[in-house]
């Protein structure tokens, strides 16, 4: 599935939570969590199943003009593939 039609969504077992102690967001799932970087958080927040990969990248590109949209798209897709590889994401296959 390509970026123009894939609509990634966090798996049912995954929760995105803000940790007030560290000021960072965590992806929580059974027995483990991922402390996300700022850009990883921006991407994860848009994994609602309603945004395509391309829409996510285009949306973020509006706020990060210091880097090319192509590079953002690549980073977004790489990150989403990593999450999918851990079983944390659906809708990307």
């Amino acid at each position: 599935m390509t970026g123009d039609i894939a609509r990634p969504q966090l798996s049912l077992k995954v929760r995105l939570r803000f940790d007030r102690r560290t000021g960072r967001y965590l992806l929580l799932y059974p027995e483990t969590g991922l402390e996300l970087s700022r850009t990883a958080t921006e991407i994860a927040r848009l994994c609602t199943g309603e945004w395509t990969v391309d829409e996510i990248a285009q949306h973020l590109a509006q706020f990060h003009t210091e880097i090319s949209p192509v590079e953002i798209s690549r980073d977004v897709l790489d990150f989403l593939k990593t999450l999918a590889g851990r079983g944390l994401l659906q809708g990307l296959q």
Binding site: T32, G33, E35, T39, I67, D75
Partner: peptide
């Protein structure tokens, strides 16, 4: 804020 490659650190839910 500048773009940085998205990353994460795995933490055990102890």
């Amino acid at each position: 804020m500048n773009w940085e490659a998205p990353s994460f650190v795995e933490v055990k839910m102890d």
